[in-house]
Nucleic acid binder design. Structure first.
Length: 515
RNA sequence: GCCGGUGUAGCUCAGCUGGUAGAGCACCUGAUUUGUAAUCAGUAGGUCGCGGGUUCGAAUCCCGCCGCCGGCCCCA
C-alpha cells in the first residue's frame, strides 16, 4: 500500500510506506535534496529524514522558507552547544532557540567567564564539527529515562524543563557527542551549516526571571553559504551607518552630556527646529480631529499618583519624591500626564453634551529608566509625549478609537514608517492580580479594541500580558535601522479612573500617545 | 539594576609584556585651479572618562565610581 503525498503545486505523488520528505525531494531532483532543511507535513514542521505519517500534504522547506531558516538556526544552536561542551566540559545548558536573525544558547559555565576573545575558538570548533556532517538523530524517550540522563549529566536546567513535560511527548536529538532535550525539528546533518559566526555574549536570566540565576547567552548566526554570511555582515555595517544615534551626532540634531545626566537629551538648534516642525504638524492634525490643547506643570503632589495607582505600580521607576523646604509637602517629577488630564476633566461638572472631550498636550515627563535600558532617543529618562486623553460615553468608544487609529496612521505614514506592526496588548492570561478595574470592564475593553482594530482594517498581532495595569492597549511598533522593535504610538482604554467619580456609570477614557 | 565589552585630539582609531602620547580625516595657513567624497606642504589641537592605590615612574597594573555599546529584566 502506497501513501499519497500532495505537493504545494497541487500534484499528488505516490511513495512507499516509510518514505521521508528527503526521499520525496530526491525523487524531484538531487539539487532540491541538497537544499532541503526540513518539511512542513500537514502544517507541522518535521525533520526531513523522518518517515511521513501516511497520506499528507508536504512542503519541502529550504533556506528560502522562514521555517527552513529557523530549522537551520535551531540546529546551529545545537552545533554551538556541542562545540561549547567540547571546549568547556561541564557546561550546563538552558535553552537554545532560533530567533529572528540567528539563534542563541543560554549556558551556565560555572566559574568560567566567556568574552568575545573566545568566539573564534568556538567558531573553529563549530566549523570542524559541521564538516563531519553529523546527522541529527531523533529519539523518543520516556520521562523517567530522560530524567535519569540529565541527572547523570548534572544538568539541572534540563531537569527543570522536563518537569513541565509529560511522558510520551519527550524527544532527544543527538548529533555527534551532544544529546539535547528537544522537540525538533532539525536539519538532516551538520554539513548544511557552512558559515558560522558567534555574534555576541550577554547575561540572560533563567526563564526570564530576574530573581533567578543569570546565565550566559551566546548569540550566533549561520548560513548555508559563506557568501551569505559575508553579505549579512556588510548589511549590519550599513545598518550601523543609519543608526539614529550616529546620524543625530553627524547632523548636529542632539547630544548627551555626562554632566547633565544619562538619558537626558540636549536638542541642538537643528534638532530643535526639526522637533518644532514635527510638533506643529501634529498639533495641526490634532486640531483637525477635534482635540484641544492643554498644558500642565512638570511636578505634582505625590498623592496625585498614589490616587491614580501609578505610584504603587511605578513608584520605584520614578524619580523619587522631593520635599518642599518649609511645608513638608512631597512632590514628584511628572512621570505621565494622565492624572493631570483627569484633573482637568474633573475640574468642573461635565454633562453628556461635553463628550467626547479630547485633551491633548505635548507633555514632558521624567522616568527613572534603568541605566542598562537607555538607548539614544529611543529610551530616555526625560521625553516629551504627544499625549492625549479622550473622555467619551461608552457608546462613543468604538468610533473614537477608530479615529485615534486614523490619526496614528496619518503620523506614521507622514514619517515614512512603512514596516510598523499593530499589536493588541491584552491581560496576562494567568495572573490577573496585576490589573485594576473590574473584570467586566476589562472584557468589554479588550473586545472593543479588537473590534475597532478590525473595523479599521488594521492587521494586528495579539500579545497577552502586555496590557497596561489599567487597561488594554493597541500598540504601534516600529523598527529602527538595526531592526530593533520600539513601541511608538499607543492607544489605550482605561477601565477605571480612581480620580474621577461615577466613572463606570457614564464615562470612558482613552489615551493616545505618540512619542 | 544584572551579564559581557568599552572609554586616547572635533571624527575614526593605533599605542606589545608600565618609562611623562601618535596616525588618517576634519580645522587653520600657504601653494595648486585640476568638474562633482578626500591635490601638495605646513601649523595647531589631548587633565589618555573621573577618583583613589601600587611604583622611582601608569594611557598601560589594582580598586571604586561614571558614561557609552550589545543583550537580559523592565517599559505607566
Amino acid at each position: 500500500m502506497k501513501i499519497k503525498v500532495t505537493l504545494p503545486d497541487g500534484s499528488v505523488r505516490e511513495y512507499e510506506q516509510g518514505a521521508t520528505a528527503m526521499d520525496v525531494a530526491r525523487s524531484i531532483s538531487e539539487g532540491l535534496a541538497r537544499n532541503v532543511l526540513s518539511a512542513r507535513v500537514n502544517d507541522e514542521v518535521r525533520d526531513a529524514n523522518r518517515p511521513l505519517p501516511g497520506d499528507c500534504t508536504l512542503s519541502l522547506l529550504t533556506w528560502n522558507d522562514a521555517d527552513g531558516k529557523a530549522t537551520l538556526w535551531h540546529s546551529s544552536a545545537h552545533l554551538m552547544a556541542e562545540a561549547i561542551e567540547a571546549l568547556y566540559p561541564g557546561t550546563k545548558f538552558g535553552i537554545g532557540p532560533p530567533i529572528e536573525n540567528g539563534f542563541y544558547y543560554d549556558i551556565d559555565l560555572g566559574a568560567k567567564v566567556i568574552g568575545d576573545g573566545d568566539f573564534a575558538g568556538i567558531e573553529a570548533k563549530m566549523k570542524e564539527l559541521a564538516s563531519r556532517k553529523l546527522s541529527f538523530e531523533r529519539k523518543e524517550v520516556g520521562k523517567a529515562d530522560a530524567i535519569a540522563y540529565f541527572k547523570e549529566k548534572g544538568d539541572e536546567y534540563k531537569l527543570e524543563l522536563l518537569e513541565g513535560l509529560n511522558d510520551g511527548e519527550i524527544t532527544f536529538y543527538t548529533q555527534g557527542n551532544f544529546t539535547d532535550l528537544c522537540r525538533g525539528p532539525h536539519i538532516p546533518d551538520t554539513g548544511f551549516i557552512k558559515a558560522m559566526k558567534v555574534m555576541s555574549v550577554a547575561g540572560a536570566y533563567w526563564r526570564g526571571d530576574e530573581k533567578r540565576k543569570q546565565l550566559t547567552r551566546l548569540y550566533g548566526i549561520t548560513f548555508p553559504k559563506q557568501k551569505e554570511l559575508d553579505e549579512y555582515l556588510v548589511l549590519l555595517e550599513e545598518a550601523k551607518k543609519r543608526d539614529h544615534r550616529k546620524l543625530g551626532k553627524e547632523l548636529d540634531l542632539f547630544t548627551f552630556s555626562e554632566k547633565v545626566g544619562a538619558g537626558l537629551p540636549l536638542w541642538l538648534p537643528k534638532g530643535a527646529a526639526l522637533r518644532e516642525r514635527l510638533i506643529n504638524f501634529m498639533k495641526e492634525a490634532q486640531e483637525k480631529s477635534g482635540y484641544v490643547q492643554v498644558a500642565t506643570p512638570h511636578i505634582a503632589l505625590k498623592q496625585l499618583y498614589v490616587t491614580s495607582g501609578h505610584f504603587e505600580k511605578y513608584g520605584k521607576d520614578s524619580f523619587q519624591p522631593m520635599n518642599t523646604p518649609q511645608d513638608g509637602e512631597l512632590f514628584m517629577l511628572k512621570p505621565m500626564n494622565c492624572p493631570h488630564h483627569c484633573e482637568i476633566f474633573a475640574s468642573r461638572p461635565r454633562s453628556y453634551k461635553d463628550l467626547p472631550l479630547r485633551l491633548a498636550e505635548f507633555g514632558t515627563v521624567y522616568r527613572y529608566e534603568q541605566s542598562g535600558e537607555l538607548h539614544g532617543l529611543a529610551r530616555v529618562r526625560g521625553f516629551t509625549q504627544d499625549d492625549a486623553h479622550l473622555f467619551c460615553r461608552p457608546d462613543q468608544v468604538k468610533e473614537e478609537f477608530m479615529k485615534v487609529i486614523d490619526l496614528v496612521l496619518l503620523v506614521l505614514r507622514a514619517l515614512n514608517f512603512e514596516n510598523f506592526e499593530a499589536q493588541v496588548s491584552l491581560r496576562d492570561k494567568e495572573d490577573r492580580s496585576k490589573y485594576i478595574g473590574s473584570d467586566e470592564n476589562w472584557v468589554r475593553a479588550e473586545q472593543a479594541i479588537i473590534d475597532a482594530a478590525a473595523a479599521s482594517g488594521l492587521k494586528t498581532t495579539v500579545e497577552y500580558g502586555e496590557a497596561a495595569f489599567y487597561g488594554p492597549k493597541l500598540d504601534f511598533m516600529v523598527r529602527d535601522a538595526l531592526g530593533r522593535k520600539w513601541q511608538l504610538g499607543t492607544i489605550r482604554w482605561t477601565t477605571t479612573c480612581p480620580s474621577v467619580s461615577n466613572w463606570n456609570t457614564w464615562a470612558a477614557t482613552m489615551l493616545a500617545t505618540v512619542r
